[in-house]
């Protein structure tokens, strides 16, 4: 985009960006003195620059840092678990898993359990005295308990990763 006899708008940018050699600069300034259009463009581009550089000096409110630190403490309080508490949780998960696995191995849950709706809730019997056979549910206790053990193990692994392994390896990475 040509803005003067010998100069383009890009040259105005180069001048303002301090990308011109001393010789180019003196030629450019000489042209600005004689070329009204170039002078106008230079003024405009300089105003655009000022528009941005003045805003750069903006300062947030005086309590900005304190507010950030308070918010950080709040966020930490909401989501973080201390190492001691997480170790206790991990131990709890482990004890429950081992205990359940022991009971499963002893055959405590081998017999299937049956749930009869009229027995669970007498109101059902009151209104529907002749309940069909379908109202009886047979549950394989062993499968249910094995599912709980697997779920426990998954929770245990997540806890181990988040509270012990990850902080440990991050610390090691920082010190290496």
């Amino acid at each position: 985009m040509s803005v003067g006899k010998n100069f383009k708008r890009e040259d105005v940018w180069r001048y303002l960006d301090h990308d011109m050699s001393e010789e180019e600069k003196s030629n450019f300034l000489a042209a600005v003195k004689t070329d009204k259009n170039l002078e106008k463009i230079l003024e405009e581009e300089n105003l655009i620059r000022l528009h941005f550089t003045r805003i750069k000096l903006s300062e947030p409110s005086a309590g900005f840092t304190n507010l950030v630190m308070e918010k950080i403490q709040k966020v930490q309080g909401e989501f973080s678990i201390s190492i001691k508490r997480s170790m206790l949780l991990l131990a709890g998960v482990l004890v429950v898993t081992l205990l359940t696995a022991f009971l499963v191995s002893k055959g405590i849950f081998d017999s299937p359990g049956t749930i009869k709706l009229p027995e669970v809730n007498p109101v059902v019997n009151q209104y529907l005295p002749n309940m069909p056979e379908a109202s009886q549910f047979t549950i394989n206790n062993k499968i249910v308990v094995n599912g709980i053990i697997i779920l426990n193990l998954i929770i245990g692994f997540v806890l181990l990763d988040r509270t012990v392994l990850r902080p440990f390896f991050q610390k090691r990475m920082r010190h290496s």
Binding site: S58, E59, M69, I72
Partner: peptide
């Protein structure tokens, strides 16, 4: 900060708050 001195984050905030705020403001 990562080693546990979390209060030092305030120094980072103080150092970069003007520019971060100005960029958001713009």
């Amino acid at each position: 900060i990562l080693a546990g001195e979390q209060h030092l984050f305030a120094q980072l905030v103080n150092k970069h708050k003007s520019y971060a705020y100005s960029l958001a403001l713009r």
